[in-house]
Amino acid sequence: MVSGLARVSAEVLVPAVTTVARQLAGALRRGPYGRWLSRLLDGDPQAEWLALVLLTISSALLTLLAIAAPNDCPPSALSLPLLVGGFLLHIRLQAMLLVPVGLGLLAQRLLRVPLGVRLGSALMVALAAVIGLLMSRHRSRLGLRGTRGDTMLLELAERTRDLGRLPDRLLDWRFHRALSPVSGAFFAGDFLLTSQRPDRDLLEVVLVDVSGKGSRAAARSMHLSGAFAMLLGSVPPEAFLPRANDYLAAGDWEDEFATAVHLALSPSTGRYRLFNAGHPPAAHYHRANGGRWELRGESGPALGIFAGTRYPPTAGRLAYGDSLLLYSDGLVEVPGEDIDQGIGRLLEAATPLLRYGGAADPAAELLQTVARNVADDRTVVIVRRLGAGS
């Protein structure tokens, strides 16, 4: 009885509290404080000067509190204005904040009886000053304060993912994708692009793997995804990889390239063309006669290596019950092992998922089965044409 009442109370109170919190947050954003904070985070000079004044006052108050109540407020509390300033102030103003903090330490050294300022507290404040200056320098280069730069990067990453959103259902087709950046990060060197043109009975899917790993690869990935997305759908399928290659080659990115596989599918007939630029071959699963795999896609050079490269298509047709598998090398490459062995493991794991069709999301299940803990970005796309028993 008690547990039931508690559950009902929680069901009633949690939405109510959430609603009130959202209303208060909205009111704050629309009020003068919210408008000032928004201007501050966007780098408005007047808002920054006011922030410097407030942080200077807080430093003075912390100094007075440490002198009046030496057992309750340590000198290291002066680290707080410095760290907050690192988020909010331009580096020039952050350097100016060092003056009132330094004077506060000196006043405590002379007037905070009998404790004074110990070496550990002084070192703590000095470390906060260094960290604050480094944070301020980084955000000054961005031209944004606080977490605005981080929010912008997250929005760009979300936009990149949206560019590769596959249709949920299309006639008798099902599409599945799974992306797993290295180390569980939000940003990846792999990206996916799609373009659907029903008037031409054409669906295009492009999987790109930018060279390298980590933040540098992710930055190039976001740059290229925008450029390639403008290109995809605006040129014939056979022209996409040559144009993308010329764009990358013209950029003169030293020792940097990208691999890509491009699928151009006719949903009404199941016919497709594959274009490959240095990428692992796509795999066509033929469900008839017990099921078999066929690797497809003659590979040309990676994008950005040689200008003027042409990428010949490989044509095929997905019959009812067939599937096509696109994947990045993170699923099949193992140091010291031939890539064919990795591809064999991938196809062996994919066979029961595609033959019996029991998995709700075969792409995610395949990624977890084959490459759960791999120090590389991993992406898999499954295109299925439903048939009897699928």
Score class of each variant (00 low, 15 high):
Phe186Val: 14
Leu346Arg: 10
Ile91Leu: 15
Ser58Phe: 12
Leu24Ser: 11
Ala51Phe: 10
Val381Asp: 10
Ala217Glu: 07
Ala188Phe: 07
Met222Cys: 09
Ser3Pro: 01
Gly116Thr: 09
Ala47Leu: 08
Pro301Leu: 14
Arg29Ala: 14
Tyr33Met: 08
Leu274Lys: 03
Gly389Lys: 01
Leu203Glu: 01
Pro237Glu: 09
Pro280Lys: 02
Arg355Asp: 15
Thr147Phe: 04
Asp338Cys: 06
Ala77Arg: 05
Gly43Lys: 12
Arg296Leu: 03
Val8Leu: 01
Ala360Lys: 07
Gly43Glu: 05
Ser323Glu: 03
Gly104Glu: 01
Glu11Lys: 02
Gly120Thr: 10
Pro242Ala: 02
Leu142Asn: 13
Arg345Thr: 11
Gly146Tyr: 06
Arg378Met: 08
Ala239Gly: 10
Gly164Phe: 06
Leu5Tyr: 03
Ser79Leu: 06
Ala157Val: 08
Gly34Ile: 09
Ile343Tyr: 08
Ser140Asp: 14
Ser234Lys: 07
Gly104Thr: 05
Asp168Ile: 04
Gly336Ile: 10
Ser225Phe: 04
Glu155Thr: 15
Trp36Lys: 01
Leu318Asn: 01
Ile382Thr: 08
Leu106Cys: 09
Ala302Cys: 11
Ala244Tyr: 02
Leu241Gly: 00
Asp162Thr: 15
Leu354Lys: 02
Ile91Pro: 15
Arg243Asp: 04
Ala364Trp: 03
Ile57Met: 09
Gln108Glu: 08
Asn289Lys: 12
Leu263Ser: 00
Thr314Trp: 05
Leu303Gly: 03
Met230Asp: 13
Ala60Arg: 11
Ala107His: 11
Asp377Lys: 04
Thr194Pro: 01
Ala249Arg: 00
Ile305Tyr: 05
His262Thr: 02
Leu325Thr: 10
Ala315Met: 08
Ala350Asn: 10
Arg296Asp: 02
Phe306Gln: 02
Gly116Arg: 10
Glu155Ser: 06
Gly132Asn: 13
